[in-house]
Design a protein around this nucleic acid. Structure first.
Length: 220
DNA sequence: GACCAGGCACATC
DNA sequence: GATGTGCATGGT
């Protein structure tokens, strides 16, 4: 996927964005008061509705456990029990701890220190943490650290696929290149665009029975 | 009760 | 490399 000045994708991706933004307005992502809270949220929300995650985060906050140090020190069973309602709680407790160990070992548990790292290397290092895959790494980079990285997820693929822009066997990396190479490199744009994919995917471009009066229909 | 939700790692072929 | 499976709660 190469950057080309007059790729037909530039026009269509720009049109889709305008249509979605015009229809839904600003999404104000990522909901969260700090980069650390956002990073925790990216792990907890893996294959899980945000609604469930929100409650757990509020609970952690209320109990004053939402800090790298506190969570890092918390025993596995206690953490798992705390995050029970997000589902996959044993897996996610472990993944969260893996991230906290990474943060502690490399950046003294500080998101600010982590934010001094370069995007490309940091992405590779995050991907080496067991339990952090491409979407989680990119969500941390974009939403917690404000790096110009386009986050791909199941909604993004479903919307692009439904509208014939990508094929069914397209990879994460291919979709990310498609978007990054055909849009201006702009953190706020990437932030909003991904959130809009989620919005339209959630409420209109549903798994079945296909589109439900999709706001993109007259456009494409 | 089936289906879905802001994935990822791992086993097996 | 590609395909399949476990992880688990909560809302529709």
């Amino acid at each position: 996927m190469t950057r080309s000045r007059n790729s037909p994708h530039q026009q269509i991706l720009s049109d889709i964005y305008k249509r979605l933004f015009g229809y839904f307005g600003p999404q104000e992502w990522w909901p969260g008061d700090s980069p650390f809270e956002i990073a925790v949220g990216t792990i907890l929300t893996q294959n899980t509705s945000w609604r469930n995650v929100e409650k757990v985060i509020q609970n952690l906050k209320h109990e004053k456990y939402l800090s790298a140090k506190k969570l890092h020190e918390m025993p596995h069973n206690k953490l798992a029990s705390f995050i029970k309602s997000v589902g996959y709680f044993n897996v996610k407790a472990k993944r969260l701890k893996n991230f906290l160990s990474f943060l502690s070992n490399h950046y003294q548990g500080s998101m600010k220190r982590m934010a001094t790292a370069g995007t490309v290397l940091l992405r590779e290092n995050l991907l080496d943490v067991n339990g952090i895959g491409p979407e989680t790494a990119d969500s941390i980079l974009l939403y917690a650290l404000e790096r110009p990285v386009f986050v791909i997820d199941a909604y993004t693929k479903r919307v692009l696929r439904r509208h014939g822009i990508v094929s069914d066997d397209v990879t994460y990396h291919e979709m990310q290149e498609l978007l990054q190479n055909n849009l201006p490199e702009d953190v706020q744009l990437f932030n909003e665009y991904h959130a809009l994919f989620v919005m339209v995917g959630k409420h209109y471009c549903k798994p079945k029975p296909r589109c439900d009066s999709c706001p993109l229909e007259p456009l494409l």
